[in-house]
Design a protein around this nucleic acid. Structure first.
Lengths: 211, 211
DNA sequence: GTCTATACTACGATAGAC
DNA sequence: GTCTATCGTAGTATAGAC
């Protein structure tokens, strides 16, 4: 399928070099087709970019099932929620480590720095849903009612995962490694899960102090 | 000064659009000079880019004094180290919030995604030094001897700060705000400092368990 | 639907006037 | 030092053949 080939290569190339860093000729050549196919199927470079964003939103969350986490939220069980947060964290950290996530992760990072309409499309998909579930899980795990407090906490948890991808070059330097092996990532995941445990405990203590 | 104008605009433009996303003509025009000035002063586009990276490394850490934190490390006082980590966190979060950091922060983010020689230069400056001090402070604050454990912890702390800049578009969406006000950032800083406190306590407990 | 050929614009580098 | 002029290359879009 010419269209799927074009999309895959578009995500890879746009992610790596940005919208302006790639030529439609390059993308077409890599997809073994003529440049004018892009004009025909997507109306032009911009159209292909937005189509790639939709594809990113699709690929991003294909691995996990939000429903399971939503069920935990519905159950209202704090211990289960805490376990679910740890699972979500480990899963996301592992997904970010897999090479096939590189393409769409780069694409998203670029859109974070300079959001365009493409970011709206991506956030409307898996990203927004996952964020919402994480916030809800934090509320259940801590008993916190204040949505704002839970959202801020969710961001701080997410940051600990994100950093391994978003500041990967710095992490490599700090850890004095050429590549970040699976063992290192596992070690880091253990650290982050312990951190989250400590943070949730702290949030519960804060809530009880207030009362 | 033509050269300083070129550097400032280069950081801004290269940061926003990447090396290939800007033309030397645009940069020269924005600096009110001729394109050939870039060839003359920096040898070409590439030379200007590397010069911009050096300028970024300079601007990045101009605000704070590493020496002060190094003195705390030398003192070996755990309570002072903990306070220093909180100060460093708050300071960096505030610095990232200031609009003038946008230009060089974008430049660095781009280099994290696709490191070039420019990243080496930036890391060799403030970034590497700050990272090292943070690791040392964590060792002092927790009594942890294992450098690797401290480095992983440092990364998780840094991630909580970084996320507000690197995933700003997502944070805005999650917090349902068009702009991230100073109040929100203060609230977030309070959350992160409390998180760090809890994490350091947890690390001390882990160390005592091991013994 | 997919390709070739072509029109038009903008790029970076350089030479040379001042 | 800073400018203008120009060269060769590469970009997107489009028209038309098959």
């Amino acid at each position: 399928m010419v269209q799927q080939r074009l999309l895959d290569i578009a995500i890879e190339q746009f992610g790596q070099h940005g919208l302006e860093g790639v030529s439609t000729r390059e993308i077409a050549a890599a997809a073994n087709t003529a440049m004018s196919s892009i004009t025909y199927h997507y109306g032009g470079k911009e159209g292909l970019y937005l189509a790639a964003a939709d594809e990113v939103a699709k690929q991003m969350g294909c691995d996990w099932q939000i429903d399971m986490f939503e069920a935990v939220v519905a159950s209202g069980d704090p211990a289960a929620a805490r376990e679910a947060i740890a699972d979500l964290t480990r899963g996301f950290l592992q997904q970010l480590q897999q090479p096939q996530s590189n393409d769409w992760a780069l694409f998203i990072m670029r859109e974070q720095l300079q959001p365009t309409e493409a970011f709206e499309r991506i956030y409307a998909g898996t990203m927004g849903q996952t964020g919402k579930v994480l916030v809800d899980l934090i509320c259940v795990a801590t008993g916190v009612q204040d949505g704002q407090a839970a959202r801020l906490a969710a961001i701080s948890l997410f940051g600990q995962v994100l950093v391994m991808k978003a500041a990967r070059a710095m992490c490599r330097k700090m850890l004095e490694r050429e590549t970040l092996s699976e063992e290192i990532i596992d070690e880091y995941a253990t650290r982050v899960v312990a951190n989250i445990d400590a943070i949730l405990d702290r949030m519960i203590a804060e809530r009880q102090e207030q009362a």
